[in-house]
Design a protein around this nucleic acid. Structure first.
Lengths: 240, 240
DNA sequence: TAAAAGAGTGAATACCATTAACCATGTGAC
DNA sequence: GTCACATGGTTAATGGTATTCACTCTTTTA
């Protein structure tokens, strides 16, 4: 079965433990509190030992980042697949809500994946990490493509879009691997702008003094966004 | 004239220099690279000397934060007052654009004022800093109040707003010191959500691979937002 | 003019990352 | 089974950071 040698097994275990500890420490202390020394203490080795597993502190953060990407995307995908396969409204609603729920429950992780901390990783020598924006774009592209095929979307004609913006939308479309008109891409970006704004507001808490709970604003926004897409709030939304 | 003693003058000078150095270092190295030691080197003293001026590193960051708040608000106010006093469209457009321009030109500073780094300041023992969201809300409240008085706005009636959301909007209204219906407040929040989303997207660069220049999306958004408010893009917009 | 207040220094402590030299042990070839 | 080698850990050293404390020098002021 497991053709793993003792060494390989121990290595895999320590790597798993170290990443788990790193994730926990980051969540508790913030990314800046995620230190090699703390992780080393948590797993019972000396700090230099971790250099056999990660490329220094930057590599550790990068490893956490990679894990988070899968966790996040899995989460969103699960929320979507919990819905009726023909209920696009429920799919979009649930997936978007999953993004918000995960982000609120994992604020530090959000900062790493989709916020300010990302910039610092991208700048490091660890190479440009998988860009979540791309994956998420491709993910949400599926229901948008369906809506487009079904002729539900009211979009701008190519020639009505500012040429510079049109070029950017085409670049986006290529990178994310979509194949519908840039008017649809524009619609996606318009939706994402609002979702992302709400996310950052909620996670970074700049208006926490009034909007302590983001759900009312979220639901209000979803009604609006679904409306833009010619949809109505689904009566069959399934939330965990 | 200057009833300042020699000591007071020297102190004021060093404090000014230290904050200027801190601002420069933060912009170049990021907030995490803003160290007491670096500032001490820049102004030619030893690190402990700075404890006579700031409450440790947290106090230094806080001092920079406070300076940035004024700089930012001045900037936005100037952009607004450059416009025709009766051209609300131009005022809103220019003020919003000033927010974007400043943020793009001062990404680290944006992170401190309106992004993730703020959270860490707010959490520190330095006390809750002036909340920029409040000041900005009060600022943009003026043109909104005018539009409301002029009867241009199409808003939801109080009873059509979800009760929980309505309560949050009332709290926001109170804290920011506005006096129009919560439907107008909701309109402000809807606009801000989009603006803030665009800002974070542009500053944190998650979609930089396609939207390297945020201006086309910004102008597209402004047309939309002005439309929501029953306005048109002003032909007399004055940008610096 | 002498006491008090203020502003800086140097030393000490305690974190942190990172590298280098070194040692123990598991692995695999023979 | 034995032995060379790769692997994964150690300690020690370097250098960066914040922070506190004791001390000195200087300016202010009573």
């Amino acid at each position: 079965m497991t053709a793993l040698t003792r060494r390989e097994r121990l290595r895999a275990e320590l790597e798993r433990d170290a990443k788990a500890a790193a994730r926990r420490i980051a969540a508790e202390e913030g990314v800046e509190g995620l230190t090699l020394a703390a992780v080393a203490r948590a797993v019972g080795v000396t700090p230099p030992a971790l250099y056999r597993y990660f490329n220094g502190r930057a590599g550790l953060v990068r490893a956490v980042y990679d894990d988070l990407t899968s966790e996040f995307m899995d989460n969103v995908a699960k929320a979507l697949h919990r819905q009726d396969p023909d209920d696009v409204s429920a799919q979009l609603h649930a997936a978007t809500r999953a993004v918000l729920d995960w982000s609120m429950a994992n604020k530090v992780e959000f900062d790493l994946l989709m916020g300010a901390a990302y910039v610092k990783i991208a700048d490091s020598e660890e190479g440009i990490p998988k860009v979540i924006a791309r994956e998420l774009g491709g993910f949400f592209g599926v229901p948008f493509a369906r809506l487009w095929r079904e002729g539900r979307l009211v979009i701008d004609a190519d020639e009505d879009i500012d040429p510079v913006l049109a070029e950017q939308l085409r670049t986006y479309r290529t990178h994310v691997g979509l194949d519908f008109p840039i008017g649809v891409v524009l619609l996606m970006v318009i939706c994402w702008r609002q979702i992302y704004g709400l996310l950052c507001m909620a996670v970074y808490g700049h208006q926490e003094f009034a909007f302590d709970d983001p759900m009312p604003l979220f639901e209000h926004m979803m009604d609006h966004l679904l409306g833009i897409l010619g949809l109505e709030r689904s009566p069959n939304l399934r939330v965990p």
